[in-house]
């Protein structure tokens, strides 16, 4: 019983980090209909930013710097690689996204070498807590709470503010939104900023647990989080959160059963199953193909 709870806790914590990244995918996909392949690598770069910020500043300033730098990176990628292709076929935009991801990985290999670098310990986050028979570090307990608070905040932002309303309008029909006087580029940039911010927070929580950053540490989590977003219904924030938790818990269970080889495979099998039986995900809206 205790081991089950212990693994459950790890799974929920991993799921929380996944959920934060998955929100970034779901937001961008909702607006641009684009899998932002670079999102996982933005998350990886946030890890490296933390290593360097932490070496030079106290931890609270370092965290803020990392958040700002990641947001700038995300918006810069949008401006440089996606906005020139606004009217291009979808395949070109997707190839551009793959190109950015490739570039970021190679850039990280070039700048920081391919060897893993150790992630700094933020004071307090690694403190071991013992509740009953469960032992886990503080970050394990914090992650799901942070995830839920942030996603609740995001839902409020999207439903109740002006910028949120314009995001919804753009995702529904961006041409009509433009005619209504919504500034398309500002809205899209804002979306990328929010997505990158959440990826940065997710990266702090994820890497504090893993303690290692290397140039490819973003690619597989990135793919998994996209699957999480699809699982929950792309475009839906609660869906992304729940998808993240399902993936995190499922993976941890498989690892606990000694099937760590198939923990990655699990994600993609899940993707196929969900796309075959419920292509719009758990919370997705039904889309009708028009001729």
């Amino acid at each position: 019983m205790d081991t089950i709870l212990q693994h459950g806790l790890t799974g929920i914590s991993l799921g929380g980090a996944y959920a934060l990244i998955a929100i970034g995918y779901t937001l961008v996909y909702g607006i641009l209909r684009l899998i932002n392949f670079a999102h996982g690598d933005i998350f990886m770069m946030a890890g490296y930013f933390m290593i360097f910020a932490f070496a030079n500043f106290p931890w609270y300033i370092a965290i803020i710097l990392v958040l700002i730098a990641t947001v700038i990176l995300g918006v810069a990628i949008e401006k440089a690689a996606y906005s020139p292709l606004r009217n291009a076929p979808r395949m070109s935009v997707m190839i551009s996204a793959i190109g950015v991801s490739y570039l970021l990985q190679n850039l990280a290999t070039y700048l920081f070498t391919a060897l893993p670098m150790s992630y700094p310990e933020i004071p307090g986050l690694k403190k071991i807590l013992i509740i009953g028979n469960l032992t886990a570090s503080l970050v394990t307990f914090i992650t799901p709470i942070v995830t839920i608070v942030l996603s609740a905040g995001l839902i409020i932002l999207i439903n109740n503010t002006k910028i949120g309303m314009s995001m919804r309008a753009v995702s529904r029909d961006y041409e009509a939104a433009q005619l209504m006087g919504i500034k398309l580029n500002t809205t899209i940039s804002f979306t990328f900023a929010v997505g990158s911010l959440l990826a940065a927070i997710g990266s702090i929580l994820y890497f504090t647990d893993r303690m290692m950053v290397f140039p490819f540490s973003g690619s597989l989590p990135g793919l998994k989080c996209f699957v999480a977003a699809v699982l929950g219904g792309i475009g839906s924030i609660p869906g992304a959160v729940i998808g993240g938790f399902i993936l995190g818990i499922g993976e941890t269970i498989l690892i606990a059963c000694g099937q760590s080889t198939f923990s990655d495979a699990f994600t993609f099998v899940l993707l196929i199953i969900i796309l075959l039986f419920r292509p719009t995900g758990i919370f997705g809206e039904k889309v009708i193909d028009k001729v």
């Binding site: 684009l34 899998i35 979808r90 395949m91 997707m94 597989l220 793919l223 996209f226 699957v227 699809v230 990655d264 994600t267 993609f268 993707l271 196929i272 796309l275």
Partner: peptide, 13 residues
């Protein structure tokens, strides 16, 4: 299109 890309990529992995 994009789901196919992710799924094939996943299978390669």
């Amino acid at each position: 299109s994009d789901y196919l890309a992710i799924a094939t990529l996943g299978f390669a992995e």
